[in-house]
């Protein structure tokens, strides 16, 4: 493995973390995660259920703290959740007691001074609602919208604060397949349009490969070469890290042979408990990828 200048990565990249461990009740969930993500990336994270991908996202968000290691955004350590990291959850992202437009502009109101004019916010909020194509529904309450619409409002609600990175935790996991494809295409268009940084956690491999410019595979199925290590619980590591080509924002890509092959490879590397790779064999060919030993 080529030795990389890690401190250079830390300076250059938007998101950077080294030697991250997360332990719950003595059980290791994340085992020595090293990850660096550059600006403009739509980085997707996949892994089998229970591998700790949502935990990783919550660590970046500041909802939880790592037990070891530190996470940096633009070279600065992250603290509690704050407005430089936006979040869209699968559920509960919207405030049920506020109308759509109020949900979108509430961040503006939180951060405004006492004498700010609400009208300015409403105009800006309507701009964002137009962008997510929901301006006609500005006056409704969240419960009056479909699941896909709610998620689009939640995206607008986060984007209006111009976060350095938008974290998404299985945002489309609760949507039916048709709506899901629509909103995937929509997200890609939006991402190309305003060049934002997205960190996207999903258990859907196809979705991850389709959306991402880079895919991280997190998995607890690997071996560290010691005898009997299958029986000792060990936390998940990044077992594969691929750069993905951005071809076109069309769902036909999902069926291309190249994608199919990649998906099969990732299934083998990360999702099959019988196939255990050695740590030194991990496919970490992405230029930003590194492993501290």
């Amino acid at each position: 493995m080529v030795k990389k200048d890690i401190s250079y990565l830390k300076q250059k990249n938007l998101l950077h973390m080294e030697n991250i461990y997360k332990i719950y009740d003595g059980k290791v969930v994340l085992n020595d995660i090293d990850l660096s993500v550059s600006k403009g990336e739509l980085c997707t994270v996949v892994g089998p259920s229970g591998c700790g991908k949502s935990t990783l996202l919550r660590l970046i968000l500041g909802q939880e703290r790592p037990d070891k290691g530190e996470i940096f955004i633009e070279g600065k350590p992250v603290g509690f959740a704050s407005k430089d990291r936006g979040i869209v959850y699968q559920k509960y992202s919207l405030f049920p007691h506020l109308s759509v437009i109020e949900n979108v502009i509430i961040g503006k109101k939180f951060t405004a001074g006492l004498f700010a004019k609400k009208q300015v916010f409403i105009e800006e909020g309507m701009e964002y609602l137009k962008r997510v194509r929901l301006d006609a529904h500005y006056n409704k309450y969240p419960h009056e919208l479909s699941g896909g619409m709610q998620q689009r409002v939640a995206i607008a609600q986060s984007l209006i604060m111009k976060p350095k990175i938008l974290l998404m935790d299985e945002p489309f996991g609760a949507l039916d397949p048709g709506t899901r494809e629509d909103i995937q295409v929509f997200l890609l268009e939006l991402w190309e349009d305003i060049k934002m940084n997205i960190f996207f956690v999903t258990h859907d491999l196809e979705e991850a490969v389709f959306l991402g410019t880079r895919i991280i595979v997190l998995s607890q199925f690997y071996t560290d070469g010691l005898p009997n290590d299958q029986n000792t619980p060990k936390g998940a590591k990044i077992v594969a890290d691929h750069a993905l080509e951005r071809i076109a924002a069309s769902t036909t890509v999902k069926k291309s042979i190249k994608n199919r092959e990649l998906i099969e490879q990732i299934k083998l590397d990360g999702f099959s408990p019988e196939y255990l790779q050695r740590i030194s064999e991990f496919n970490l060919r992405h230029p930003d990828s590194f492993q501290t030993i």
Binding site: L61, M161, P163
Partner: peptide
Amino acid sequence: IHEEQIIKALTLGASQFSIVYKI
């Protein structure tokens, strides 16, 4: 109230005061 709501408000720049009285 789901923890997500509180965290979401924090990521939108809410102060602790705003979380209590506006969320």
